[in-house]
Each structure stands twice: as structure tokens, then as C-alpha cells.
Design a protein around this nucleic acid. Sequence first.
DNA 1: CTGAAAGCGCTAACAT
DNA 2: ATGTTAGCGCTTTCAG
Lengths: 379, 379
Amino acid sequence: MTPSTGRAGVSGAPRSVDVARLAGVSQKTVSRVFNDEAYVSAEVRKRVLDAADELGYRLNHAARALASGRTRSIGVVTLGTALYGPASLLIGVERAARDTGYALRVVNTLEGDPGGVGGAIDSLLKQGVDGIVISEPIDEEGDGGAVPADVRVPVLVLGAPVATTGPGTVAAGVGADLLARAATEHLLDLGHRTVHHLAGPQRWYAARDRLRGWREALEARGCDEPSVVEGDWSAASGYAAGRELAADPAVTAVFAANDDMAIGLMRALTEAGRTVPDDVSVVGFDDIPVAAFVTPPLTTVRQPFDAVAQEGLRLLVHAIEKPEADLPPANDPPVELVLRASTAPAPSRTDPGGVRRSATRPRRGAKAAPPNGGPSDRS
Amino acid sequence: MTPSTGRAGVSGAPRSVDVARLAGVSQKTVSRVFNDEAYVSAEVRKRVLDAADELGYRLNHAARALASGRTRSIGVVTLGTALYGPASLLIGVERAARDTGYALRVVNTLEGDPGGVGGAIDSLLKQGVDGIVISEPIDEEGDGGAVPADVRVPVLVLGAPVATTGPGTVAAGVGADLLARAATEHLLDLGHRTVHHLAGPQRWYAARDRLRGWREALEARGCDEPSVVEGDWSAASGYAAGRELAADPAVTAVFAANDDMAIGLMRALTEAGRTVPDDVSVVGFDDIPVAAFVTPPLTTVRQPFDAVAQEGLRLLVHAIEKPEADLPPANDPPVELVLRASTAPAPSRTDPGGVRRSATRPRRGAKAAPPNGGPSDRS
DNA sequence: CTGAAAGCGCTAACAT
DNA sequence: ATGTTAGCGCTTTCAG
């Protein structure tokens, strides 16, 4: 055997030397062209590109990563659920990554999985990523959403407080607490004496934020704080909670931490003979696509997932590419309270109150229109 | 400068030589340990592992890929939507890949994007993947879901016919047509004279399959085939279609190609004064989590996304690792028709018929129970 | 503006 | 059961 034949060269894929040979330039020049480096004459560049095209040349990322120490890829740690929120965030992240020229490596942490986030990050690090995004983390066993200490790449946390460790940990996501607050205030503005909360699982930071926002709104208005019912995001859990709440005549307004639970809740209420919104008003969270079409159409808070992902990635890429520079200022994405037909003024009861019944019109950036082609507002 | 200091070694991350030195063995032995090769004494193995642990050593995948020509990662081409189907499939694929020891690279093809699937595949190939899965492809501009000719790795197509090119193209996914057929037959069994179809966008293979299944069921029973209304999977499009259908008194049963559209449809029907299921029966497709909790709870077809993904990956990994061997036999995942409250016997009309009204009990593997904790069947 | 040489961290083949 | 050597395909110095 002649020592000249490379072993893996058998795979047959053309390499940059092949392109170089065909174009009559050095291998380095090919490299320059494919890295958009300056100082390559237009003519040479074209010759190289043509040669590459003819050969069907594709740059080998593994070799590039090995030589350069950079991979131009970003790892995403996400939950293995089809929940609208996490799924939408993932899509937003992928798009934003592509726009900035990064590829995506994805690892799911199945809920309650040993090693959880730490293990996922470790596996991403082995695979080689320039940055990591942790989407909608949950607080497993009080690990504080911990990021292992020896992560040497920037980390972006989406939808949770920065559980800092490592050099450049950044965070993005509208404070869900503000949104929750707006939702609760909307209900209060309608004259309800207080608002019940159907919370998400409290291991999720997202769920905690919403609880906090609700609580703050009640406090600010001096309202009683009813005990919280906790669900697991599913419509089934919302349904179960609804059966409880339906039995309590004091319940006239409920803020659910997501739309699925709100839908289950409404179903239970209706079955129990309590009309929505006449007897009980309900507000959801997320604005899932069917929210406008359930009965009654659901008033809810729209989360700008795409904007959050985009903004987060901007920060992350900045941290990757300019580690020394300060972070650019955060752009807070727009938030929206979408008013539909599941909320109404508090039912008049034995109680003469109503003093606080201020106005029915939306507060904050609220908008009243249903999605295009949507159903009429009142069922 | 001494020539001994490697350039990128500055990054500080420990390499396998460092581990070898600390463990007092050769570098190759470290490699053996991390590849679970035979012929390493238990004692040496432990020493190596301990040393690696102490150093915080992490294998460098880029180097491994370059040297071995294999990446142990799989690329996924998926649509950038939060639709329940594609999202669920992606999760299933991730889990199955992890179980078989492969990492995931994800690329979305934004709908109607130039280059589409071809471009996505190309980018995955550059990044280096041992196999590719194309999830729920759509037929862009009659490209036949084309896979570029020079793909040198096995391809798995999920939810579409094998658009063959390349060596090992495999496919998985229950024939959605069978499921659609079962749904249609269920309606026919309830005594409806025929069944209308609210189809998905026909560029999607998944939508075409469902249409075909519906058509076959009608043909088999000699029923009229009403004209098809096409939606875009969204509840909004279902709502729009529902307004049309509501105006036609001949419509007593509709099979919608997914649950979102079914929900929009029911909403429109209800608003138009046509009660579901008394006046019109509706069947959806997917069994999205809220399906059991809308009003009325939706009868639908459950797709075993997880099983499909798992089965598909089994095939793909087989094609990757044993290119010569025959494909193992396909295991068809279980299918289910989930009966809830959106379907009922055809309303008795001027028409005396009813001869065909055979039975109300489910056909095929149908089951009647709502999900646990679900609402009662009749609203 | 272009090229030559060295080496990224690992695995493959061939010794022992 | 373990070590030696060569090289995967690229980027990075450094020289022209």
C-alpha cells in the first residue's frame, strides 16, 4: 500500500485541496473564500466557487471546529413536552439562530430526569457548542436550576431568573409577572372583589412568576388573597381544579396560568352549571391558537415567544462573539392582553359594593380584537 | 516560543493525553476506555476514569468525528410550527435518538422557503450527520418532497411517502389514511348518509392521506362524496369553513383533518345555531390535549407520535449502522379512535332511511374512555 | 493579495 | 492487554 492514500479519504467526498487543485490555487485560498476573508481577488474567488460547485464540495464542519475551536452552533436544553410555550420558544430560537448563522443542537430533559439540566449541558458541551440556551427550566429538587460550574460558554436562560454561574449568563423573557398582573387587574377592573388563581406547577419558574404577578395585583388593590389551586398545565388538571372552584360561590373570577388549564376549568364550571362569563370570569395565559374558538372565546395574555427568543439570541450571540464588550441593552418585547368573551363584569350579588367597578375598557397595551376571521365576541 | 505549546491548547480544556499522563497509560488506552472497547483491564479502566473525572475531561466530538468519519448525530428537518403533530414528532425523535446514543441537529424549513428541504439537508450534511429525518414534509411546488441526489446518508421520512433518492431511504408512520377511514366509518356507522371533509392544506402529505382515507371509506359504502373544504390546520380556518358548512342543511357529519380545525368548526356551527352533536357530528384528528375539554368533548383519532418516531428511528439507526443488512420488519404502532361527545346518531329527518344505521359501538381498535380525569361524555 | 508549514484532539491500523 | 504511528480536513501562524 502506498502511504499516500489517506484512510478516510475513501469516503469520496471532495475536500478543499481538491477544489484548490481544480481552481489552480492553494488550499489556503479556498479556505479564505469559504470564510469570507478579505484579500481575495474577485476573479480568484469566482474560480474557487465554480470549482467547488463543480465538485459538489461541502465544507467539513468537524474539521473546522477542531482547527478553530469554534463550532458555530448553539445548544438548546428544553423540556420534552409539546406544550405551546416551550414548543414556540424552540421554534423562535431555531429561527433566530439560523438568522445569525448558528446551527442548533437540541437536548430534552425529560421531566424529573436524573442529572436533568446538568447532564444535558454536559452532553452539549461534549458535542461542542459555542453557547447554550436553557428554555423554561424547572427547579428540580431545589437545584436552583443550577448550571454546572465549569461551563465555559455563555448561557442564555429563557423564562427564568438567571441562575448564575459561569462567565456570561444572560436572561430574556418578559417578566411573566407583569403579564399576570395585567390579567388580574383586568378582572379587578371588571368589579370582581377578588380573583382566584389556578397556578401552574410551582417547580416551573414561569409558574412562580405568574403567581407572583397575581399576588402583587391583589395586594396593590387591597384584595383578599384566596388560596391557590395548583395544576400541572394540562386541561385535565384545570378540569379537576374547576370542579373544586365551582363548588365555592365566592368564586367569580379566575386567572389560570395557561390556556389549557383555563379551558379545562371552563368545562368544569359549565358542567357544574356555572356560566362563563356570567357567573364566573376566566382569563388564561399564552393565547394558544384555539383560544379564540373555544366556548366562550377565551380572554388571555399573549406571550411574544418569537420576540423573546430573538432578543435572547441576540444577547447570547453577542456574549459569544464579543465576550469583553458590555451587553447591549435589552429590548422588551411587546405584551398583550387579548380580550374575548370569557370575562364580564362581576355578577351583582347580595353585595351592594361595586364601588371599585371602574371601567370595562382594557388597560395597558390591551387590544380587543379577536384574531382575523375569529368568532364574534359574545357567544 | 517553544514549539511544544499547541495553539488551541490555550483553551485550557483537558485532552485525552492529559488524562493518559495522569493515569499513567498511553493516550490510546484512554481512547479505548471512552469507546467501551474490549481488552482493557478493569483496573486500568478505573484508573483512567478516575483521572478523567479529576481533570473534568470531556471527549471532543469534533476531533472524534474528524478522525472516524462518523458523528453519532442525526439531523432533523422539520417545519417551523408549534402544531401539535410536528412538535410531538420532534420530541419523539429526540427521545429515541438519545436512547440510541445519537445527538440531534435541528433545522426548520419555514414554510414556502426557497431551497426548502433541499437547503436544509445540505446544511445538515455540512454540519455532519450520520442520518437525516424529514418530518412531515410538504410538497413545495411539486418538488415531490425531493431529497437531493447526493445525500450519502440514510434518510427517514416521517409522515409521507418515501420520496426516494439515495441509498437507504426509509419511512415510518401509520398510514393516516387508515385512521381517516376509521373516523369516517364511525360516522357512517352512526347512520349519517354521508360525511363531509374539512381537509388540511393539500401540499401536506399528511393532509392528502387523510383525504384519501375519507374518500375510500365513502366509496366503500357507496356514499356520495360531497365537495371538500380545505383549511390550513388552524382553528381560524376551521371556523371559516364552519360558516359555510353550517349554511348547508345536508351537512350532518364532518370529519376534520385535525383537532384545531374541528374546534373552530364546532364553534362556527354552534354560533350558527346548529348543535353539535345533535344536528351535526364532528370528528377531529390528533387528540390534542384540550380535545377532551372543549364543548362538546371532541371525538377524535389519536396518533401515536411517540411510537412512530421510535419505530422510525429504529429503522434509521439500523440503516446507519448496518448498511448492508436488510431492514428489520416494521412494527405498526397502535391506532385509536377516541370516542367522546361530538358525534351522535344522524338526526332523523324527513328521510325515512336509517337502513344503514348499523351500530353505535366503535370499530377497529376504538376505545370509548375519555382521558383520565376527563369530563363526562355528554355535555 | 497569496502560499507553506504546523497542528487542532482524536481514532485506525499495525505493532507488540 | 497495551503502545506507536500516521493522518482525518481544516484554520492558524508566518513568509512572501
